[in-house]
Simulated assay, not measured.
Amino acid sequence: MNLLFTEYTLGKNKLKNRAVMAPMTRSRAIGNIPNDLMAEYYAQRASAGLQITEGVSPSPNGLGYARIPGIFSEEQVQGWKKVTDAVHAKQGRIFVQLMHSGRVGNHLNLPKGAELVGPSAIGLKGTTWTDAEGSQPYSSPREMNLKDIQAAILEYAKAAENAIKAGFDGIELHGANGYLIEQFLHPSANHRNDEYGGDWKKRNRFAVEVATAVVEAIGADKVGIRLSPYGVFNDLEIHDEIEEQYKDLAISLGKLGLVYIHIVNHSSMGAPAPKDSTVAEIRELYKSQNPNGAYILSGGYDPERADSDLKEKNADLIAFGRNFISNPDLVERLEKGIPLAEADASLFYTPGEKGYTDYPVAALSKV
């Protein structure tokens, strides 16, 4: 039996299989508010054991990209309620990913009164899309002071409470891919010399304090985190302290009792692969503090490799990304050996249903 298609208990949630739909930005939230189209999209993919939403900002300051959703207003909470109701109607389970973009973005994408902030005033090279003026250079962030940092921590906690109010089964903190939490973790984005920067123990502090606040708000059994050791997305660079830093972070997160750690591996798309030894040590140290916690791996999996890693206890759950975009029935296709449809990358971040909710299930397709 392939373990990928067996049930798993995650905290208090019984998952119908061990396939996780990874978080993927889709940019369909007009006005940063979840809508009926998004509810349809997630409901279509509710056969995943667990869905993790696209990155959702806990703060107006975290809306650096065009059309990404938030979860800090009542209107956004009600919009997400449509999504969770639609997923639960299909017996699915869904966590919201809390993603503060931090220094990543352009001021034209932010609502009135918001500003781009980061651990240090270090901008990104290159450009990003704005609906107002097309492709524009990344805006320079303002360095967060201690008051800003405490406010951001409280925003994460409030967003977690809003997520439970909206019907989510839990939340994932986005501590990967160069967004705010990882910006604090990383020496190329964090040049501070106070209690939140300098050596790696201090750089870990923001991540641990955010996780602590969220656990206190909604309970550790509803809180996971995504990490990307050796990730270079959004102008990050490989550094010499990664292994020791993430081992220490794994212990801290395990002590908090987080329900899972989710490791990013984008090597199948050309990014550097995390070291196998580091991935294993993070798992072992996290589970040494929290034996019942789950470990999620991602990155170019097929059913056979997934089954192997599950049986060898390298992972408890396996995340799939882009194939879920073009295969709303991905789990059934994988289990039955049905060919997968290809996604149209030109439609990943465009508004509207095209390339979003119009991919057919196998029974209705010609594959």
Rank of each mutant, 00 (worst) to 15 (best):
G62F: 03
G126H: 08
Y246P: 13
E54I: 08
N2V: 10
M1I: 12
T128L: 09
A341P: 06
D248P: 04
Y260C: 05
W80V: 15
Q44Y: 00
I30G: 02
P272S: 03
P137H: 01
Y295G: 02
R103D: 11
E54D: 10
E161I: 05
L258C: 04
G123V: 11
G126A: 07
I171V: 15
Y196G: 11
L63S: 11
S57Y: 00
R305P: 07
I318S: 05
I225H: 05
A46V: 06
Y295F: 15
P328S: 02
V223K: 08
T278I: 13
S268C: 11
G118N: 11
T278A: 08
N327C: 07
D194T: 10
T357E: 02
M144N: 10
A345Q: 10
A43Q: 04
E143G: 10
Y246T: 14
G254I: 07
E243C: 02
R192P: 15
K311W: 00
A48E: 11
G62A: 06
S277M: 03
P328Q: 03
A345Y: 02
I122F: 04
G254T: 12
M24C: 04
R67G: 01
G224M: 02
L50M: 06
A363E: 14
E335W: 01
H88P: 12
E74D: 15
S73H: 03
K336E: 11
E133P: 01
G219M: 01
D307M: 05
D248W: 01
P119V: 11
R103V: 13
N13G: 00
I181C: 05
L15W: 01
A280R: 11
Y246N: 14
N35D: 12
E115L: 03
N327S: 09
Y349W: 12
G270Q: 08
Y246I: 15
G299I: 09
S27G: 01
F5R: 15
N35P: 14
I149P: 14
D221I: 02
H239S: 10
D169S: 08
R28D: 09
Q91F: 01
V20I: 14
P274Q: 05
G337V: 09
L37E: 15
I242N: 07
D248A: 14
S73Q: 09
A306F: 01
N32Y: 02
N177A: 07
E281F: 00
A271V: 05
R28Q: 12
L317H: 07
D248C: 04
S267K: 07
M144Y: 02
P351H: 04
T9V: 12
A19G: 09
A166Q: 05
N290T: 13
R322F: 00
R142V: 14
K158R: 14
L154V: 09
L37Q: 13
D169T: 13
L154C: 02
Y42F: 12
A86W: 05
K287N: 06
E353D: 13
E182N: 14
L249F: 02
L154H: 07
A294L: 09
F324I: 13
N13S: 13
F184V: 15
E172R: 08
A22M: 09
S228I: 08
L236T: 05
G102M: 08
